[in-house]
Design a protein around this nucleic acid. Sequence first.
DNA 1: CGTAGATGTTTGACGTCATCAAGTAATGCG
DNA 2: CGCATTACTTGATGACGTCAAACATCTACG
Lengths: 146, 146
Amino acid sequence: MSATTPETPTKLQLLELLAAIGTAQWRDFAAAAAHHGLTSTQAKVLAQLNGPLPMRALATLLVCDASNVTGIVDRLEGRGLVRREADASDRRVKNVVATDEGREVIRRVREEMQATHGALDTLGAEDSATLYGLLARLRPGMENNA
Amino acid sequence: MSATTPETPTKLQLLELLAAIGTAQWRDFAAAAAHHGLTSTQAKVLAQLNGPLPMRALATLLVCDASNVTGIVDRLEGRGLVRREADASDRRVKNVVATDEGREVIRRVREEMQATHGALDTLGAEDSATLYGLLARLRPGMENNA
DNA sequence: CGTAGATGTTTGACGTCATCAAGTAATGCG
DNA sequence: CGCATTACTTGATGACGTCAAACATCTACG
């Protein structure tokens, strides 16, 4: 057992620790994105684009107004990282697709999250598995909105 | 053992899961803040104010430009959630202090993070301790920036 | 079929967050 | 004193975020 068992933490302590890790990872992500001339929001959008996605779906994923997505995609399109394509079956929708350059940029951003990578490297295989299991149990409850 | 041991996850999987949890918690926080008429940034500032803090220190904590803090504190002060106080020993600095109302509001925001609280409640004492231990090991590496 | 209502996207107005550059005031040290 | 440093503010500018309104297209129902 490489994970020692500390005293049972307060829910508040756990919450605070979770928040700290979350913001640290976010900072790491934002810094890596900035390194490539992207805002964190732009990088976040790019990160969602595994396949073509309608504007509306993007807005839903980002939990923001659809009109907001217009501007973000405009700027990404201006840099050639993304393309709008007409949808075959519904002429109202425009599908957003990452260009080759866009895919490459987001790949590098992920690669360059040094701090996060380094931290994860300190965990052995067994601890990683344990952490993964615990977080996986947390996830569904946290994504259920009110 | 209530935590089953899953297959060893990829570093990428773990990273993605961590990101998902982080954004879910952030959404929860932002929603609770909005419920009290605060932007997430304002709530974040309020959350830092355990004691009096100079503007500059606040900017350092938020990892942003000092000029940015001016506006945020202006708006919080406008709502009576925060006060600027002259520093006794250095007349250049202004210490930001949460008012009673400010403390009350941030207390409620923390209370109302339903999703996060609910998710944490699904973990037993032992699992909480394990998670806490693992995250605590991750934290220092993630906060060391490049 | 044909129109009424729902849906996807964009535009415009507006407020907040973020940066940078410049200005003012106070500190501190030679 | 003089001069660099530090703390805070102001003003310009851009990205994000919301809402309301316009527009085209789809869908359902009579």
